[in-house]
Amino acid sequence: MATSHLDALKRDGFVVVRNLLTPTEVAQYRDIATAATTRTRTGGWPHFRTVPKQFPPWPTTPPPASEGGIWGVQHLLHPEMAGRDQFARCYFSPSILAVAEELMGVSPDQADEALVMELFNLLVAPETKDFELRWHRDDIAETASAEEELKLLAAKSPGGRQSHAQYNLALCPDASLVVVPGSHRRARTDAERSAAPYEPSMPNQLVVELQPGDAVFYDSNILHRGTYRAKPENGDETRLTLHGSLGLKPVDGADADAEEKKKVRATAVLQHGVGAWVHRDDAAFGIGERPEKMRANLVAMGTGEGVGFSLQG
């Protein structure tokens, strides 16, 4: 059934949901996100995204602040993450799950069994210098021909329906995501294909502007990039954006390409290392049956050993 959020996602490749968090929730999550960022910047958390690298695998040692430091904190749902219980209540919150279900076409009678826990990370401002991500689609290589792009886009979101929901949820004002609306349904134009990797003014681009509590859900294969402004020296954190994804449990034999789709999604998720800890006994959440069913569906995807990486760089 068509809905306003799903219509926007199909048409534009993204949809902004305003006030998904209350001001009280924003303040609460901003506090624990700030603490997680400080801990990571100072070497107390080993899972992060580092400047100037865009895609995994990530280094194991954060670069010094003078070189930009980190731009992301990984694995907010890890059993050893401080504030994990609160992060989990956010990730599994009914308001976020409801939007994800809507966008993935999950009916109420399927909801308890269909969803897969995937990733929950934090995007932050680098230190001392700005950082940018190049134009990309999350799991279609930039070397793909127009014909290959069309085939892959059709396979990954047939009829505009995705097997996962990906979002940015802002805890500070955020204007970092830049997209080309509608590019999730077509091959790149000649201008897009020949554009510089960090082209600042791609034709028809749009900067997605979020206020604290707002979220943008987007097709991961829309043509997009990110811009990260450095935080003021010794100042408050200027970007704290929760970056999450939820999956849809594949149905064996649903189509001829079912196994290949499962493999591609497993790579996209497990390349980040979540499979190394999600099966642990202490990874249980203790906040109801649904999170545990979603976690079990992720465990079933495997450990991630040997899956490789979606993109390079």
Rank of each mutant, 00 (worst) to 15 (best):
M117R: 10
K53A: 14
A111I: 01
L103N: 02
L119P: 09
W58L: 05
S95M: 10
A114N: 03
E127K: 09
E102F: 00
G72D: 06
I96M: 05
A88K: 14
L77D: 00
V73I: 11
L123H: 12
A100E: 00
W45T: 05
H47K: 14
G105D: 04
P59M: 10
D85M: 13
P126Q: 00
G68C: 05
A114H: 01
G83M: 08
V106L: 05
T60Y: 11
T61C: 09
E102T: 03
D85W: 11
A65P: 14
M117V: 02
E67F: 10
V116F: 06
Q54N: 14
G72W: 06
G69D: 02
I70V: 10
D85A: 15
I70C: 02
W45Q: 03
N121M: 08
L97A: 08
I70N: 08
P57T: 11
P59I: 07
F120A: 05
L122R: 08
P56H: 05
P56M: 03
A98H: 01
P59R: 12
I96W: 01
A114T: 07
C90G: 14
A65C: 13
A82I: 12
A82C: 10
V124F: 11
E67H: 03
R84Q: 15
E101F: 03
T60C: 07
L119G: 07
F92V: 03
T61K: 15
L77S: 04
L122Y: 12
W71Y: 13
L122E: 11
N121P: 09
F48P: 06
E113S: 09
S66F: 10
D112E: 13
P46S: 14
V116D: 00
V116A: 01
P62D: 07
K129V: 12
F48C: 14
P94H: 15
L103K: 01
Y91V: 06
H75W: 07
E127G: 07
H47T: 11
L122T: 12
R49N: 15
T128Y: 08
P108V: 04
D112K: 12
V124P: 04
G43A: 05
G43D: 03
P56R: 12
L123P: 10
E101K: 01
A82H: 14
P108T: 05
Q74Y: 10
L97F: 01
A65Y: 13
P59W: 11
A114V: 05
S66Q: 13
A100M: 05
L77P: 05
A100P: 04
P64E: 15
P63I: 10
D112A: 13
S66G: 11
F87C: 09
G69E: 01
